[in-house]
Simulated scan of single mutants.
Amino acid sequence: MHLFFIRHGETEHNVAGLLAGVSDSRLTNHGVLQTQRLGRYLTTHRNLRFTQIYASDLQRAFMTAEALQRNLLTRLSGEEVPGVVKLELLREQDFGSLELVPWTSRSAQHTLNPRVPNSEDTSFRPQETTEAMVKRADLFLNDFILPLFASAEDARDTVQECVAVVSHGLFLSVLWQTLLGKFSTRNVALGPNIEGWGNNRPLEYLPPWTNTGFLEVTIQKRTAEVVTQPWNDRSLILTEIEQSAFSGYSMTVHGINSKDHLLDLKRTRGGLGSAPYDAKQQSLDGFFKRSESNSSST
Rank of each mutant, 00 (worst) to 15 (best):
T104Y: 06
T74D: 14
L139D: 06
T44A: 04
L190T: 04
F5N: 02
A55C: 13
S258D: 11
L265T: 07
T111Y: 12
I194Q: 04
L203H: 12
L72H: 11
N113M: 11
G248D: 08
L3R: 01
A279P: 12
H254K: 04
F287D: 12
Q281A: 13
L284A: 05
A108N: 12
S97N: 08
H261E: 07
H45W: 01
S293M: 11
N200D: 15
W103M: 09
S244Q: 08
Q177D: 10
P276R: 03
N71M: 12
I194F: 04
F4M: 09
R136Y: 10
S123D: 15
R70Q: 13
D260N: 11
Q127M: 15
R186Y: 09
L73M: 11
R156N: 02
Q69M: 12
L139H: 08
L284S: 05
S250G: 11
R222D: 07
T28V: 03
V217E: 08
S151P: 00
T122E: 15
T11H: 00
A224D: 11
Q160C: 09
D278T: 05
V134W: 01
F246T: 03
A16P: 00
T44G: 01
L90M: 04
F214C: 02
W103A: 09
R75A: 13
A16C: 01
R267K: 14
N232T: 12
W176P: 07
R234G: 04
A275S: 14
Y41I: 09
N71T: 02
S283N: 05
T210M: 04
V227C: 09
A150D: 15
S173L: 08
T223G: 02
S293C: 07
I6Y: 13
H8D: 10
Q59G: 05
Y205A: 09
E131V: 09
T158A: 12
T223D: 02
M133S: 10
K289V: 05
I194E: 04
F149R: 05
P230F: 13
S107R: 14
V163D: 05
V116N: 07
E131D: 13
